[in-house]
Structure formats: structure tokens, C-alpha cells
Measured scan of single mutants.
Amino acid sequence: SRHTFEINGERWTVEGVSEELKEILRAAERASNDEAERLLRLALKLI
């Protein structure tokens, strides 16, 4: 499935992501810059 999210003013669209990964991306959208970066690094390990 496709998911579009915005982090630090940048929009991203990813396809074929699991519900778990979507949850991480949604958390990154709400997080501070440092926390968002940490969550994105974690998410990339899952891809």
C-alpha cells in the first residue's frame, strides 16, 4: 500500500509498506527533528 508523509517540511511517498512501518512513519511526522531522524533510520532498516 502507498503512504504519504511529511517530515521537516519534506513530503515522501512510499509504496508496499507494512502497517508497522506506517506506524513508525506517522510517529516520525509528529516527532522533533532529532527523534524523527532516529525513527527514519530505524524504518530504513526494516525496508
Rank of each mutant, 00 (worst) to 15 (best):
F5C: 06
R26V: 09
A36Q: 10
E29Y: 05
E20I: 12
V14S: 02
T4D: 06
E10G: 04
A43C: 07
F5V: 05
R38M: 11
K22P: 00
A28S: 03
L44T: 03
T13F: 09
K22R: 14
A27F: 06
K45Q: 13
D34V: 12
A31I: 03
L44Y: 05
E35V: 08
F5L: 04
E29L: 07
I47M: 13
V14A: 05
S1A: 12
L21P: 01
R30I: 10
G16D: 12
E20V: 10
R30G: 12
R2F: 11
A31G: 05
S18E: 04
W12H: 04
T4K: 03
L39M: 05
L44R: 07
L44W: 06
I24C: 03
T13R: 03
A28K: 01
A28P: 00
I47T: 03
A36M: 09
I24A: 03
E10V: 15
S1H: 14
T13I: 13
L44V: 07
E29Q: 08
E35Y: 05
E23W: 10
I7N: 01
E35F: 06
L44Q: 04
R41Q: 10
A43Y: 10
I7R: 01
K45S: 14
G9Q: 02
R26W: 09
A31C: 05
E20C: 11
F5I: 06
E6T: 13
T13C: 13
I24T: 03
R2H: 11
W12F: 13
L44F: 06
L42H: 07
E15L: 10
V14F: 15
E19R: 04
E6P: 02
S18M: 04
E35P: 02
A31Y: 03
S18V: 04
S1D: 14
E15G: 05
T13V: 14
L39R: 01
H3A: 09
A28Q: 02
I47G: 03
R41K: 12
I24V: 07
T13W: 13
A31V: 06
K45L: 12
S32Y: 06
L25Y: 02
A31Q: 04
E19A: 08
E35I: 08
R30Y: 09
A36G: 06
E37K: 12
E19S: 08
A43R: 01
K22H: 14
R11T: 15
L39H: 01
I24G: 00
G16A: 11
K45E: 11
R2E: 09
R26S: 12
